[in-house]
């Protein structure tokens, strides 16, 4: 946040680079993140507003250095923790187990 009270994500009107026509097909893990956020929202486990709040609070560095769905899974997780769906301990333990299954996404997701 600047001294004006303007927040980093509120970027309308800033000078910036030419718009590059970038596109990419989404990977399976990215589609899964998208599916989780849609389904959890429909189920009332969090709100889109809560997701946006966390993305904003993550700050500009996250916007510049993390990919779109990296930021979204971070926010989905934060909201699920805040709302008591599982604990940080459960998450930490499970992430360790996932890592032990293999070195690629395919192996870790299906081990």
């Amino acid at each position: 946040m600047t001294a004006s009270g303007r927040r980093w994500h509120d970027m309308g009107g800033d000078a910036s680079d030419p718009v590059l026509p970038d596109e990419h097909d989404f990977a399976l893990w990215e589609k899964r993140v998208d599916a989780l956020l849609v389904l959890c929202n429909v189920k009332g486990l969090f709100t889109v507003d809560g997701l946006r709040r966390v993305l904003e609070d993550m700050g500009p560095e996250a916007f510049e250095t993390m990919s779109y769905y990296e930021r979204w899974i971070t926010s989905v997780n934060q909201n699920l923790i805040e709302n008591g769906v599982y604990t940080i301990e459960e998450l930490g333990q499970r992430m360790e187990e996932v890592k032990m299954r293999g070195n690629t996404y395919g192996d870790a997701a299906n081990g």
């Binding site: 946040m1 004006s4 009270g5 303007r6 927040r7 509120d10 309308g12 009107g13 507003d49 946006r52 709040r53 904003e56």
Partner: peptide, 14 residues
Amino acid sequence: SYSPPGHVRTPYYL
């Protein structure tokens, strides 16, 4: 024209 901190959906430029 105020600027409270926190999550709001009113763009600053407006």
